[in-house]
Simulated assay, not measured.
Amino acid sequence: MDLIEYAIGMDALTHGRMNVAMGDVLAIWQSYREAGVEQPEAAALPPMDQLEAANEHVGIDSVVVDRAAGTLYLRDPEARLDVGAIAKGYAAQKAVEAMEAAGVSSMLLSVGGNVCSIGTRADGSSWKVGIRDPYSDGNLCVVQVDGQSVVTSGTYERYYTVDGRRYHHIIDPATLMPSTRYDSVTVISEDSGLADALTTGLFCMPVDEGMALIESLPDTEALWVLSDGSQRMSGGFSNYLTAQN
């Protein structure tokens, strides 16, 4: 229930761009993506009418958390939850908090595209985390952190190809299609759950709106790689860049 309540808050923060109630829409895309990966010659896009029908049941208001009763239920029987955009970061944050409570003062935890740090390295230096270049196997840049989490989402993670065009897994609620604004978004924050939710939310909003959101949050920075290859950084992101960049 904690995760779902947190997700509801992230839906509000991102103005619906990170909506765990989009389960049916995401399931349709996942089915077509998996089929396209298995049989590339037969890869196809989901019919828009099928996506639109599923989109009738994505209201976050249908998700009801009843703490007193200890229950979670959906008012809409056709609604479906998908916590993939937030669960990994949320779980990583809980792991970090448990480690800190146990007395751990120096640790780097990597869970896929989520990297969490506690304190500094044993020698007192900051942890260095590479941010992947969305166009190669190398690093776009390297950041140094000491207690922050670094989370990146990109078009290179899960995708399939239809008629020579790549379709990735981050679906824009406004279009029901993969977002075409960016090729990667990175967020640095002291909370891995927040960073995970934000990378998805930012992927689906214009960069100026995303920039305003990031600037409104304390101790949170972001890096966008736009679909034309250009980059935008929030005001304090450069403070995390290492000298080698």
Score class of each variant (00 low, 15 high):
L45E: 03
A222H: 01
S31I: 04
M1R: 14
F237Y: 06
P173R: 12
G154F: 13
M18L: 14
P178Y: 09
P134E: 09
V111Q: 03
T175C: 06
T200I: 08
S62T: 13
L202N: 08
V111W: 00
E41G: 03
S238G: 00
L140N: 02
I8G: 00
Y167P: 08
F203I: 14
R158Y: 06
Y240I: 00
T242A: 12
P134V: 08
D2S: 14
A122M: 14
A102V: 04
V162G: 00
R33A: 08
D137N: 15
Q50A: 04
L51Y: 01
A222G: 04
V145M: 11
A43F: 02
G236F: 02
E38N: 07
S234M: 11
D66R: 06
M99P: 05
Q30W: 02
A54W: 08
Y32Q: 12
S184D: 08
G130L: 11
V151G: 11
A87I: 15
A87H: 13
A85Y: 11
R132A: 14
T242N: 09
A7P: 14
D76E: 13
R80S: 15
V185P: 00
H15W: 02
L13N: 06
A197L: 01
V64I: 12
A44S: 15
S106K: 10
N245E: 07
D66Y: 03
Y182C: 03
Y156S: 05
S153Q: 10
Q144N: 15
S62K: 07
